[in-house]
Design a protein around this nucleic acid. Structure first.
Length: 644
RNA sequence: GCUGUUGUAGCUCAGGGGUAGAGCACUUCCUUGGUAAGGAAGAGGUCGAGGGUUCAAUUCCCUUCAACAGCUCCA
């Protein structure tokens, strides 16, 4: 019997039944066979040594394919486990999957500590084992035998995993003396794993549950060539240079103080300029989009949050109430702005003709985040949202939602964020008690969000369990320099709070109706947005945001007076900058301005004074020749001001 | 919050049971220099905080605070 194998280019080849991936690769070319790591068979990734019994479409995976890398790293995880079992007899294993960059294995070392120093020894053992070029051998195992094996071995984690599996679907993989419960696939042998780097050790809860035991998670990455490992480590180092915490310190944008308290950022003068420019940009965009700015206090009575439901949900895990001399009085630091905005809505009766009403506020909120969560400016305990709440009629929801999507996309476009992902954050249907409100309204809100996103042609990923407790969200996620994903913009449809706050409007039918509320924050928070922006542009802000747009550098003291007049003229037309009149050589002044990432250096000496010009040098680009000051300004005028 | 690592000058870091060191930054002086570091001198530290061991602790031990990595969480 022959089987028909369809290749990715659409061509069909016939092989004998039971043909293996590696044989197909060999039939195509020697080179492919040499580089092949795994095979995709009808959408499933298989080992190259697994026989193919029926007509199939296949694709051979090499290192250049994601599937190939995953098989490679998955196999590397097993190699790590094999090394650990030799070096730490009695070690128990949790799970060891491939991840985006490398792999990890969760292990229970039975109370032994394992630090960064121990990584090198394990690495060495892994390389030693890889050189043995042992095959990864797959075998089908009846559930009973699988249980017996791990019972005998005494690995309760694997036993727990097996219990959740169907009999008949259990496979083992073995390389050398190491046997693991595993679905596969794996690369043919350990040989191709040439370069090994164990990156770090961290704790991780068994099965991701805080109530379970914490295992030791060892992260690593491997490559088929030493050179590729070196390149990877170089890229990681480069990414670290973009870290907003590092740049924030170097460029004097923000700081933290132990005395003020953890997670409470202090905005330094330069950071404040960036932040305020972003605010100006957003204010302008919001005026255009029909928002009304409002201002509300930083605290609110406890009753406000009992009404909103926040107190019940977060009260005990939050900053605790503020007390006053009046025994019965309690205030909370505001964790969000919506309740205040609801009360603004309520100051007078509303007609259907008034809607939509859009209240916008740069509202500073305080949330008691777990100490281990705090991270630079991306996760803080006091931050300012570019918040707004739209109160509208049910028939206006979609149009309003779409208008907000457009605003978010305008922001991303203006700041050059090209690679964001749009995530529809839905409720976890298994865990409904986490949320307030009935099924009908939730379903409606979830549907409306998806429809609005589709209408704007957004590619979305739906994720269950990520909704806010009062409603589903459309979240815009952007990655930081180290590949960690952060939520920036967010848009949420909410049918719950208007009910809780008894918001109303009088309809055309002269009846009372409940409005729908849309929460939205295109930046998310100024703190997180600035953090991601810093990493995005590596501290080289667009000209309109740069804290210092120019530096005037006189060649010597003799030209300080002229330099001062240049600074004064630019400041007069709201261009920001400073004079470097230190007693240093021009080379030094240029170097320092370059390090500070000042976009323009205006160098003035004898020649410039005589011709009434400035010599323009652009950050990272070098000398641009000399120009009349006003010609310089006009040339870059559009870049100095807020984007439209 | 949990596990692990770290904490020495403004910054980046070295050191180590006998009360500290480098480079950069800073101050002063010399130098007036044309597109990424001119020279010299000086000043600067309860070695994160609290306790313990010791004749003696910044160094060893404990506790605590903070930062970092990951987990968990995220209105």
């Amino acid at each position: 019997m022959n089987v028909k194998i369809t290749l990715p280019d659409g061509s069909v080849k016939e092989f004998q039944e039971g043909v293996k991936g590696i044989e197909i690769a060999q039939s195509i070319s020697e080179g492919l066979a040499r580089n092949a790591l795994a095979i995709e068979v009808n959408g499933e990734i298989w080992d190259l040594s697994r026989p193919i019994a029926k007509d199939s479409s296949i694709k051979i995976f090499t290192w250049n394919d994601k599937g190939g890398k995953y098989a490679f790293w998955h196999s590397s995880a097993h190699l790590l486990a094999e090394a650990l079992e030799i070096l730490y007899p009695g070690v128990k294993f949790g799970i060891g999957p491939p991840i985006e960059n490398g792999f990890y294995y969760d292990v229970d070392l039975g109370g032994k500590t394992f630090g960064d120093d121990d990584l090198a020894a394990v690495e060495k053992k892994m390389i030693e084992l890889a050189r043995l070029n042992n095959a990864f051998v797959r075998s089908d195992v009846p559930k009973k035998d699988a249980i017996d094996y791990f019972k005998k071995k005494g690995d309760e984690y694997k036993l727990e995993l097996i219990e959740g599996l169907q009999d008949g679907s259990i496979t083992f993989y073995q390389q050398g003396n190491f046997v693991d419960l595993c679905r596969g696939p794996h690369i043919p042998t350990t040989g191709p794993i040439k370069a090994v780097k164990l990156l770090n050790v961290a704790g991780a809860y068994w099965r991701g549950d805080e109530k379970n035991k914490m295992l030791t998670r060892i992260y690593g990455i491997t490559f088929p060539k030493q050179k590729e490992l070196e390149e990877y480590m170089y890229i990681v180092e480069e990414a670290k240079k973009r870290d907003h915490r590092k740049l924030g310190k170097e460029l004097e944008l923000f700081a933290f103080s132990e005395k003020v308290g953890m997670g409470l950022p202090l905005w330094l003068p330069k950071g404040t300029i960036v932040r305020e420019r972003l605010e100006q940009f957003m204010r302008k965009a919001q005026v255009k989009a029909g928002y009304d700015p409002v201002v509300t206090p930083h605290i609110g009575s406890k009753q406000l949050y009992v009404t909103s439901g926040h107190y019940e949900k977060y009260g005990k895990d939050s900053f605790q109430p503020i007390h006053t001399p009046d025994e019965n009085e309690e205030f909370l630091l505001k964790p969000m702005n919506c309740p205040h905005h609801c009360e603004i809505y309520k100051v007078k009766p509303r007609s259907y003709k008034d809607l939509p009403i859009r209240y916008a506020e740069f509202g500073t909120v305080y949330r008691y985040e777990q100490s281990g969560e705090l991270h630079g400016l991306t996760r803080v305990r006091g931050f300012t949202q570019d918040d707004a709440h739209i109160f509208c009629r049910p028939d206006q929801v979609k149009a309003e939602f779409i208008a907000v999507i457009d605003l978010v996309l305008h922001v991303f476009k203006s700041l050059g964020f090209g690679n964001y992902t749009a995530q529809v954050s839905l409720r976890d249907p298994e865990n409904k008690q986490k949320y307030i409100g009935g099924d009908e309204l939730w379903d409606k809100a979830e549907r409306e969000i998806q429809e609005a996103a589709d209408e704007r042609g957004l590619k979305t990923v739906a994720v269950k369990g990520e909704a806010a407790f009062y409603g589903p969200k459309l979240d815009f996620m952007v990655r930081d320099a180290l590949g960690r994903s952060w939520q920036l913009g967010t848009i949420q449809v909410d049918y719950q709070l208007p009910q809780r706050f008894e918001l109303e409007y009088v309809g055309a039918d002269n009846q009372r109706h409940i409005p729908v509320m849309i929460h939205r924050a295109p930046f998310g928070s100024l703190e997180r947005f600035v953090a991601v922006l810093i990493e995005h542009c590596a501290g080289n802000f667009p000209l309109w945001l740069a804290p210092e747009q120019f530096a005037v550098l006189p060649i010597s003291e003799k030209f300080n007076a002229y330099a001062k007049s240049v600074v004064a003229k630019l400041k007069e037309i709201d261009i920001r900058g400073f004079l470097d009149d230190r007693d240093e050589k021009i080379g030094r002044k240029i170097r320092d301005a370059e390090i500070k990432k000042v976009p323009f250096m205006l160098i003035v000496g004898e020649k410039e004074v005589a011709e009434n010009k400035v010599s323009v040098r652009k950050h990272g680009e070098g000398d641009k020749g000399s120009l009349d000051l006003m010609d310089f300004v006009n040339q870059f005028k559009a870049d100095f001001s807020l984007p439209v």
